[in-house]
Each structure stands twice: as C-alpha cells, then as structure tokens.
Design a protein around this nucleic acid. Sequence first.
DNA 1: CCATACCTATATCATCCTGATATATTTCAA
DNA 2: TTGAAATATATCAGGATGATATAGGTATGG
Lengths: 174, 174
Amino acid sequence: MNTKELCLGALFLGDASGYEIKQRFETTFSHFQQASFAAIYPALTRLKAEGLVSSRVEVQEKRPDKTVYSLTEAGRQHFIGALHASNGAETFRSDFILLMFFAEHLSAEKLTAVLEQHEETLRRIIDTLTEIRHCGGHSRGQLFTLDYGIAINQASLAFIEQRKAEFTSQEPSS
Amino acid sequence: MNTKELCLGALFLGDASGYEIKQRFETTFSHFQQASFAAIYPALTRLKAEGLVSSRVEVQEKRPDKTVYSLTEAGRQHFIGALHASNGAETFRSDFILLMFFAEHLSAEKLTAVLEQHEETLRRIIDTLTEIRHCGGHSRGQLFTLDYGIAINQASLAFIEQRKAEFTSQEPSS
DNA sequence: CCATACCTATATCATCCTGATATATTTCAA
DNA sequence: TTGAAATATATCAGGATGATATAGGTATGG
C-alpha cells in the first residue's frame, strides 16, 4: 500500500485535512502504518486530480484555514479494490535487534541502556493501545488490530524481561 | 542505520562480495533488516572511497569474477561507533493489519484467504529461524535475535489462531 | 539433447518516501 | 513576556525500492 491508498483509508474514517490525516497516521494507524507530510500533501493533490477525493476549504477563526478532503464514490471503490488486491505484506526493521545481534561488541553501559529504553518504549506502546482499546466505538476489525498490537508488544516485553539477565549480569560463567 | 552502516555490519561476519552481502540480508538479517542491490552496490563504492572497506578481485572459473570487500580497522571502529550512536529505533509496516482493520469491507473469501496466508507465512518464518537456531556456532547476541524472532512470530500466530473464528465463522450473533 | 529456468555477479533508472526545514498565526504556560 | 507547542501547508536533498538489463553457467525435465 502506497501513501495515496493509505490516505484513502484514512479518509474512510471521515473527512479530514492533510494535517488531520497525518494525525490519524500517528494515532489510529501508528502501530502498523506511517506516512510523512511530504508524502501526504502531494498524494492528496494527485488523488484530487484523479477524482478519488473531493475538497472544500473550511475557513477557521482562530486557526489557519484548511482544505478538507472527502472520499468520492470512485475513491471508496478504489480503496476497497486496493484492499482486495493486497497480499498483506509486512516489513519490520529494528535497530534494537541489530544492536542485540552485535551485543558482544557493545559496552556494558550501552547494552543496559538499550535494553531498558526498549522495555520502556514497549510499555508506552502497550499503555497507549490499551487506553484507545477501552474508549469504545471500535469495529470488530479495529479491535483485532488493537488487541494484536497489545499482544505482540507484550510478547516482546516478556521475552526481553526473561532474557536480559544474560546480558546485564556480570558474565555468568557458561 | 542506513545501508552503508548495515553493509559494514554484514562484513563484520566476514569478507564478502556485494552479492554475498545481499544474501546475508536475506538470511542472517532477514527478520530485522533488509537492503536491495540498488542500495548495496553504491554503498560499497562509497565505503571504499572513505577507506572503511578494502576490496580485491577474486577470479572464478565457473562463475563470474567477483569483488570481495573486507572491513578495514577504520571500518570496524566506525561500525562499533554507529552501534553505540543508535537509539534502537524500530519501524513496522503491515498491510495484513490494515486489511484486518477494514475487515468489514472485505469479502468473506478474501478475509479467509488473508488470514490463512498470513498464518502460513508466520509458520514458514518460525520454521526457518528454528532451523538456523539449531545449526550451532551462534554468538549469544545472535541466539537472542533468533529466539526473539521465533517468540514474536509464535505470539502472532497464536493470536491469529485464537481470534480468526470471529471473522471466518457465519456471523456469530453478538 | 535441448530448452528453459534458475544461480552468480554487477549496475542503474524511475519512482517513492523520509527527515529537515520554511512560513505564518495562535494558544498556553513559565 | 518570552518562548514553546499546536495548527496548517509546502518542498528539498538524500536515500531506498522494485524493476530491468547484461552475461554466462548449471541443473532439471520433457
């Protein structure tokens, strides 16, 4: 899925400006998709030219005016088509795992810091997802993604808690 | 970590040609880092210019000749420095989770297919990592990354197996 | 025995995406 | 009152990917 199609997905949740779409990437989609402003704004321009979204300017008093985008019927159909065409591919990139791979070349301080910081990151993600989860108003699919995120991050955290002693204790002999 | 630094990491495991470095990305590093030929070859050229790697041409009988790269002492130090400078950031992108998010807009056939195909993908990853894991000759850090990969993918698989009935059965009423 | 598919090996193009930076205004907290 | 943070849009330089090109060798099956 490219940024254009992901923007259609974001607009599936309701009309939004480019700025608000970015916010959806940082909340609703944050644990499985991301996109930058530099990808979103040109994507919206192109989607408009293709007739997959329409736009209107909303004048605001205490905030800058904004261009609000809506899915057109063609856009709705295009997105459903893109979902059906997708093979569900995933990519995972982790500098944390790379650091652990080369653990023997790290200083004891760095190793401890990396493990603790990563545990903290995982806890924060779990907290955020758990909070969203208990807000209500989620579809069955949305609940699946929240519970999945919570489960996987908890599994990561549990694994690290179980194994970190190997790396942080004073050289257990064997 | 960019491709240049990741190539240094790949060469930490021993001298290699660009082609062989790519193979390391597809085996040893595959579950936490990836890189394409179009990123690797220019990276090696630049690393050589910076004196972080050296190269020699190996003439082969039944295969095309190859340029084999070695880490220099400067390259070794640069990589260790890069490890210590890294904050261990991770990114995860999943079209599978996106599909599940919009599950209610998918046909029953697509939904079943997506779930089954993803289960199969996870099983294959677990099998591959388990096989590598039992080969021996791994450092403590390498074992951590293999066990971590196995644990996380098993957690994903278990979650999907537990929850898929919600989506594939004939509309359980509630 | 020959076709065709796959492996080794390197290289590059168009496209896409990110991080950083720019601009301008407003609210909120120190 | 000073400055940080939020709203809103835009774009550049640098990187990365997927596809494609070249070119010869090996292996498999009909």
